[in-house]
Design a binder for these strands. Structure first.
Lengths: 199, 199
DNA sequence: TTACTTTAATAATGTACACTTTTCAAAGTG
DNA sequence: CACTTTGAAAAGTGTACATTATTAAAGTAA
């Protein structure tokens, strides 16, 4: 009696224990769905691919560290034509995998982001509220789109030059170019390398 | 007694009776299968298509249900708006560092990228060679920009509806809208959440 | 006969749930 | 203190089954 009690004495509450959410083979919750029989084979095929895909990109959302330590999340990039029928991220169509930090940030120490305002650069694909990726280590040369503080106001414009003066060009006919003259306080912050637009 | 017997006298064998095999909406027997949640929307889409193929009923756009996923808002990068009167040193105003993967990819398992081709979506800020961030777990509702395979070709268009038909709208006057008709093979891959544009 | 009603047969459909797997804190051990 | 063992907790997984829909036969009435 005492022995048995002793052997079973490891029990008790285990709050916090339990299988983790998203621990399925696909890395997300699942659902049952009824499909026509003829779809089963190709569906199973696709599911296998999903399984492989989720296994090779384990992702942690916990990160609040600086850019440099961000986890590498390689995701598939598609291109071109695809076969009719089931939309499958089949390995056949994966051009390459992509890490957005890697793609957009060459020099983390010299890179920052700004949210764009106004419509003066629509022609360059910069819309209000877009996030601009800015590299300060790039030299602001004519033709580049730059972020600058002009008389204390932050603006994004295309850097141009006419004769001896610097011109900040808008890419929208409705907005005038700005000629930078003596006495104006202009500081260039960096060169815009990418625009992230939310649809 | 006799009355009851009389009333129940319609019983007896009914060989040959019963629902016909293959009388499902797909014209064939079905099976349940468990799939990751992010596949459900596209799967349902495909199932609808199968249904249409087997029975010549017109397209019903009501099956596009409202988006269940709450839209996430990107965090500001600078304290306050960077409007007029912006002071100088950049670093002081950076609110927090930003992980682009975190910002642009809500569900890694359900996200992929496509490189845009053509100029039909210039109005939506999508330029040739831009990289589109696509979330397949978002339900394609009217007004969203979607990636779909139309007769085997991958295209990006805005999902619209006119009367009872699905319309794939271009955002460039030079390009026509596409009306999806019976017999066309359209499969929606996902909803475009962001556009990455290289300046 | 013809049109309608009732009943039995049978498949479709969706979901509940039993069973499995994974994870982790508590208890035990040395 | 570090390690092992245990079993509770919680989610994953597949399938059984209750429900619904459809069909043909049988019955009824005009």
């Amino acid at each position: 009696m005492t022995l048995i009690t002793h052997q079973n004495a490891r029990g008790g509450a285990r709050s916090g224990a339990g299988r983790k959410k998203g621990s399925s083979v696909y890395g997300e919750t699942t659902q049952v769905i009824r499909v026509p029989e003829s779809m089963i084979p190709e569906l199973k095929n696709l599911l296998q691919q999903r399984q492989r895909q989720s296994q090779q990109t384990p992702v942690s959302f916990e990160t609040f560290r600086p850019d440099r330590d961000a986890p590498k999340t390689a995701l598939p990039l598609f291109s071109g034509k695809v076969a009719a029928g089931f939309p499958s991220p089949a390995d056949d169509y994966i051009e390459k995998t992509l890490d957005l930090n890697e793609l957009l940030v060459q020099r983390p120490a010299a890179t920052f982001f700004v949210r764009a305002e106004g419509e003066s650069m629509l022609g360059a694909g910069i819309h209000p509220n877009d996030i601009l990726v800015v590299d300060r280590s790039l030299e602001p040369v004519t033709g580049k789109i730059i972020i600058c503080a002009l008389n204390g106001e932050l603006t994004v414009k295309r850097l141009k030059s006419e004769r001896d003066v610097i011109v900040l060009g808008a890419e929208n006919p409705a907005y005038p170019d700005i000629v930078v003259q003596d006495g104006m306080d202009m500081v260039i912050w960096g060169v815009v390398t990418n625009v992230i637009h939310s649809v």
